[in-house]
Amino acid sequence: MGTDTETKRKQSAVKEKAPLRPVESPMDICLGCGTCSAGCAMTGVDGFDPRKIVRKVLMGRDAELVGSKLPWICTMCGKCEHACPMGINIVNMIRTLRGMVDRDKVPGMIQKGVELCLETGNNLGLPAEDFTFIIEDVAAEMAEEPGFEGFTVPIDKKGANLLHTLHNKLVNTQNEDLVHWWKIFHMAGEDFTIPSENWEGVNWGLFSGDDESMKIVVGRIVEHMDRLEIKNLMYPE
């Protein structure tokens, strides 16, 4: 549509790809009521407006959206959907749009993190020996606190009860936050373990709309469980 009077409305690929919410409303059912736009804290910022994005998808104007920064401004929080009277899957629409962006055009650090993770097992690209060193160092410090004497982190412990993964930022700049769970585990007498490799707890394929990478990273969790014969998983994020 737009100002081009000759062209027929294109079929949107987003509409086809984005999964439906439980009520199974196709996106076409949109009322244009504005609930999503009224509820979104980002509406009006840099032209962001969920209703507009839905409408453009319905008009088959995918390319215009894929080439813009709009899909990346959204935090995918789902507040829009929460009140949507028609059950439109706006979050999945955004993620589908993100997935349609050329990988080299994904803004910021997301794609870099995904690639490093695929390559090295964590978003930081940290080698295994450095990781082990940091973990053991922090654990040793914790063992000096009263009540936690003798604490060590079991790495790659076969037959452990619980698999624990780590958010890369705790290993990187926020080491002090590593100990909270360890303290709880220690007091609870939890039999946990951390893998020495592929320990990354986040999965940025979720953000970049990249199902392939996301599946690989999830697959590593399954591998840990199989390889180390662990009984239970503590969901990473």
């Binding site: 549509m1 737009g2 100002t3 081009d4 009077t5 000759e6 244009g32 507009k52 409408r55 453009k56």
Partner: peptide, 12 residues
């Protein structure tokens, strides 16, 4: 005009 988009429309 499409008020949702704030754009003019022309349809043949």
């Amino acid at each position: 005009d499409d008020p949702f988009l704030g754009e003019p429309v022309q349809i043949k």
